[in-house]
Structure formats: structure tokens, C-alpha cells
Design a protein around this nucleic acid. Structure first.
Lengths: 358, 358
DNA sequence: TTGTACGCGTTATCAA
DNA sequence: TTGATAACGCGTACAA
């Protein structure tokens, strides 16, 4: 009778070799009911001091940790926000994740993150989304470029949702997006203000999946420049393959050597970095021989490297996203769908210079 | 009777404005019992074809999504692994997170991430850990430099745990660590092999919290060098303040100008990057005037920048961590505690050159 | 202020 | 192969 009766279900649940302390263990230890323990934990209902002490003692002694699954089941709601991000190995998502964590804490919310494996597979992203929904989180933040709002909307009828960063609106989904049109304008203004008139823009000219954003940026850079009367040459970077990248660099470098352009615009800071290296190897100086700009401003060391770029307003994106989710979660009515758009800021850096006369 | 009887608890749970479809809704729709739906979902128990079809149909029609909280409660175990990381806005944690996600998928496990807000506050990290335990995840991966194993061990008696990357062993906790001693040796070997004998090492000489790793690296760089008979000068970088950083740069640059050293060793790639900029502004060329090495190899663009550094084996760290967790989760007995240690690889880059004679 | 008892949504046991 | 039903651990009227 010693070990067998120790816990009534000792042999009824051999599924795990790891013990679990429950609330009734604590209640028994403290000679109170489970309801009292629950109320003590909740903190919203007053509990007499001697009882408090007993319960605290019992919790410490048993090492009890509340089972959040049971809590959510009983409560029906949860103050946890689910975050779906794509590739954590990407400064953009890294900063976003970090800032959202901060924002969640400010609103006394919890953040639970699911990352979809890298690569552009919409299937696996839907899996991640499903897992978040299965957790019955109180709200969902979707920060993955590839999952289209249309697909999303059928999934998330039942939980407050905000789509972050996608340059796209949707009739039933809240979105906080990055205004790539205005961002491109920032770059263009800076380049023109420094007297450049002959400019090469490098970007994926066709809209491949996964290169959507860069395609968009390049398109708008070009359009803004042309509308301002600049002379624009575009160079297509159809893929991320090193062959394509190298060919792009060669073309740009040739244009510089032939004095056809005085500035080269790229659609990401990594691309700019790649060009900087190629230029150096080709004996071309930046910004003396050619000015160059990037896009993002998120790479660790951007300032150190002196990249001229647009800093994406990731912090504001995170803040607004969390605010909207929070409002939806505390309100018991459905709020009107919101669409917001955020503009970045230009970082002058040292790769963009005034065009020398002649 | 139309809307009022639609769902029996329509007004009994007004907590949320969002509807929830449950398993019994599906069961009713398909004219089967909840048990059948559950078995269908589980997939391990055969279900007759006509029944399958009915259930599938009903699930689609109702838009049902399983409640994982209830599942975990009923099952008592879960195939979800909890990951505690520090600052997602940090390439190291970003890559780790990404690779762990991949590894989890390979083992058919789910990964749920909690990030502790940036800053070195052990309190908030314990909060994150507690939240993971409250989720009753099947295993826990701790990847945060600041939470000491000793503190950890009292928390996680009841769930398989692996500590990732901390240079420290513990009698009851599995650890997969980065062998900073061997990593430092890699740098030292490379520097000595290129003929350098007069070397400056820059690092926090006192062991501040949060600078532990860099302190360790610097200490071992110095020790290895001295053991090999090199002439080492150390420069203290007590903090991350820009004043301290600049003072460090000045000292190193003076040493170079006075021809006291031919190589400068830094304890992170960001530090190296900072020095590269300072050197450039001071008119000192790297590696012509002085060779320089970093530590990490994780910055996006490391190869582009040509940093000479040690690439931390983050991928292997993730893989081993996930393997160990998986083994512990499938085994119903407790496995012996394991300690493993991983060595990185040297990246030659372009900031380290052969020392010129004289 | 505390205790009793039921329900939350799902799984698993046992019959049918 | 399926259906009823008892857990799972916790929150919360309702009663005391």
C-alpha cells in the first residue's frame, strides 16, 4: 500500500517518465480546496493571510507549476498572442520578433512564436498557422511575406489577426504594412538631390514568388526616377543564383566604366554589399567613381559599413501590430478592419555622394 | 428557436466575440460520436471509408480546428518542444532558431518559441522558462547565455531539457556547448601560422555579466598565444559604451602606428567591424598595416566583408540539441545526462595576412 | 472568505 | 469498427 496508493493514478498514466504536480496536490498539502489555490494563483480574489501563507508554502514545497492547457480550456480565452514568422535567420524577422516581444510585455500579453522553415513553401506556412490556431491563442500576428491574405482569411475568421509588412490590403484582415512606394521615393529624392541624373537600377524585373518585395522596390525606384526626368537604365536580376548576381555586377561595372551612370540603386542592403565587394575587386571606388544605395537598413553594422539606405520602420510596425491586436483582444465586439502603412527613414551613409560636375 | 438553440451554450460563454467550433459540432454534423472524430483525427486507428468521408466533409463544412490545449490535457504529453532564446535580434539566436525549426520538423516535433526581452535580466528569463513549463511542452531547449544551469535545474526536474551553447556543464542537465577554448586556438593557430609575433588582444578583462563569453574568448586567446611564445599586449574593453569602444580603438591604432604589433584580435565580429571602420578613418589599412581577426562568423555578409574569424558551429549545435531532446522524449526511461562540446571552423577572410618581413 | 461541483474539449477505456 | 463515458487539470458560479 505504500507506493501503490501514493497517487491514485500512479500506474494509470505511464505515458511519461516525468512526474507532474497538480493543483490538488498543492491543495492537499495546504489543507485547502483547489478553488482556494486557484484563487490565490489568480490574484483577483482576496485570500486570507494565513491561507495565503499555507498555499505559498505548499506551492514551493511541491514545486507546482500551473498547467496552462487546463487553464485555457477552463477559461476559454487566453492572453497569449501567436506570432507566425518566416525565417528567424533574417535580420528583418529578428528585429520584428524582438520588438514584438517587447510590445507584448508592455500590454501584459504573452508571445508564442512559430517559425515556418526557410524556403518559400506556402504549405508549411499554413501548418504553422494551423498550429497557432490549435493553441487557441487570443490573437495572431502574421509576419511572413508568402502567405497571401486571401488564403489567410478563411483560416482566421475566429480570432483577431493582424498581417504585418505585406504590401497588400484585404477587406476582412487588419494590416500594418510597409509603404514601399514612399520608401522608394526617399531613396530617389536623396539620389536626385545629390545631382545624379544617369542612374542604373538593379532588380528582379519579373515578379517571381519570394522576390515580390524587391520587384516592387525596383519598379517604384525606376518609376519615381523617370517621373522626375532622370535617365534610368535597368538591369534584371532574375534570381538569387550567383551566376545572375555576378552578371548583374559585371553589367553595372561596365556602365560605370563607360561613364553611362553615376549612381547604382539596389533593392536590398545585401545586394548593395555584394556590389561593394565586386566594385572593390574591379578597382572601382564607391562613392568616388559611383554612388550606390541599398534598401533595408537592418543588417547588423549598417552604420559601421556606411550604407546609404532606407531604414525600414520595423519597430513601429511591431508596435502598431501589437496595439491593434491588443485592442481587438480586450474588446468583446468586433472592431472595424484597419489598414495602416508605415514609411521608413533615409540613412545617408557613406556610399552616396554628390555627383561631381562632369 | 432559430438562433437561441443554435448552440446550447450561446449565451453561457460571452467571454469572447469569436466563435469556436468544437469536436462535438463536427460529430453532430457527421452523425457520429466525438470518439470517432477523435480517432479519425489521430489517424492511428482504422476508420471505415464511408465514415471517414462523412467526418472529412463535416470538418471542412464547419471549419473545425482541433483544440491543442484539450488534447494536451487529455493526453498528458505533447510532441512540442519549447525553445527559450534571448534576443531574436541577434544573428546567433536567429540562425539557431532557424536551424532548430528545421531539426524539429525532421523529428516530427513541433517547436514553440518564447523569447526573453533583450537585456540581461535573469528574472524575465525565468518568466519565459516558466511559461514554457506551463505549456507542458514535452521538452525544453534553453538557449540563453544568462540563465545559469544551477538555477535551471530546480525548475526542470520534470521535463527533458538541453542547455545550448553555454560553456558550462552541470550534473543533472544535458548540455551541448561551444568549445570556446578550441575556437580560440583556431584563431591563434592561424595568426601564428602567418608569422605574427607581436599581437594585441582586445577584450573585457573582468567578467561582467553578459560579457562572459567575450571575456572567456579573450582570456583564452591570450593564454594560447603566450603559451606559444608570442608577445601579447591586452587592451581592456570594460563595457559596450561608445567611449570605451573608442578608447580601445585609439589604443590599438597607437600600437599599430608605433609598430608594436602586427595583428589585432577581437572577441566578436561586430568588434572587428568597428575597428575596421576606425582604422579606415585613421588611415590605417587592413591587412597591409595590421591584420585583424574577429569571432563568430555569423554576421550576414561575413564572407562579403572578408572577415577573418571563427565560424561558430550553430547548425551542429541545433542538430545535436534537437537529437538529444528527441531521444529523451521518445524514451520512457530517464537517460544518462550528456555533455557535448562543438568546435567551429576558421574562416580566413581577407583581414588576416602574412606578416611582412621587418 | 472558503468549499462544492460542474463544465471546458479531447483522448482513451471498455462494451457493444 | 463504433459509441458511451470517465478522466485530464483548472476556473467559477453558487452555496455555505
Amino acid at each position: 500500500m505504500d507506493r501503490l496508493a501514493e497517487k491514485k493514478n500512479d500506474d494509470a498514466r505511464p505515458a511519461s517518465a516525468w512526474s507532474k504536480v497538480t493543483m490538488s496536490d498543492v491543495a492537499r498539502e495546504a489543507n485547502v480546496s483547489t478553488a482556494t489555490v486557484s484563487r490565490f494563483l489568480d490574484g483577483m480574489v482576496p485570500v486570507l493571510e494565513p491561507t495565503r501563507a499555507k498555499v505559498m508554502e505548499a506551492i514551493k514545497k511541491t514545486g507546482y507549476i500551473r498547467n496552462e492547457a487546463a487553464t485555457r480550456l477552463a477559461r476559454g480565452t487566453s492572453d497569449t498572442v501567436g506570432l507566425l514568422i518566416r525565417d528567424p535567420n533574417n535580420p528583418y524577422y529578428g528585429i520584428l520578433h524582438s520588438e514584438l516581444q517587447l510590445g507584448a510585455a508592455e500590454h501584459k500579453l504573452h508571445l508564442l512564436t512559430v517559425a515556418s522553415p526557410p524556403g518559400f513553401n506556402p504549405m508549411t506556412e499554413n501548418f504553422g498557422l494551423r498550429r497557432l490556431l490549435e493553441q487557441r491563442v487570443g490573437g495572431i500576428l502574421v509576419a511572413t511575406g508568402t502567405i497571401a491574405p486571401d488564403e489567410l482569411s478563411s483560416f482566421v475568421r475566429d480570432v483577431p489577426t493582424v498581417v504585418l509588412g505585406r504590401p497588400e490590403e484585404h477587406p476582412t484582415l487588419n494590416t500594418v504594412s510597409l509603404d514601399e512606394v514612399a520608401n522608394a521615393q526617399l531613396i530617389v529624392d536623396a539620389v536626385l538631390a545629390r545631382g545624379h541624373q544617369d542612374i542604373v537600377v538593379t532588380f528582379p524585373e519579373t515578379n517571381h514568388s519570394g522576390l515580390l518585395i524587391e520587384h516592387l522596390r525596383g519598379t517604384w525606384l525606376t518609376r519615381h526616377l523617370r517621373e522626375a526626368g532622370a535617365n534610368v537604365i535597368t538591369v534584371d536580376t532574375p534570381s538569387l543564383s550567383s551566376a545572375d548576381i555576378e552578371s548583374t555586377h559585371r553589367q553595372v561595372i561596365d556602365l560605370v566604366r563607360d561613364e553611362k551612370v553615376t549612381a547604382a540603386l539596389f533593392t536590398s542592403d545585401m545586394k548593395l554589399l555584394g556590389f561593394l565587394k565586386a566594385a572593390q575587386e574591379a578597382g572601382i571606388r564607391v562613392p568616388e567613381d559611383v554612388s550606390a544605395t541599398g534598401f533595408d537598413g537592418l543588417l547588423p553594422g549598417t552604420e559601421l559599413l556606411g550604407l546609404a539606405t532606407v531604414r525600414l520602420p520595423v519597430e513601429a510596425l511591431a508596435r502598431r501590430g501589437m496595439e491593434i491586436i491588443h485592442e481587438e483582444m480586450v474588446s468583446d465586439a468586433r472592431l472595424p478592419v484597419r489598414h495602416e502603412s508605415l514609411v521608413g527613414s533615409f540613412l545617408p551613409g557613406r556610399t552616396l555622394a554628390v555627383r561631381l560636375p562632369q
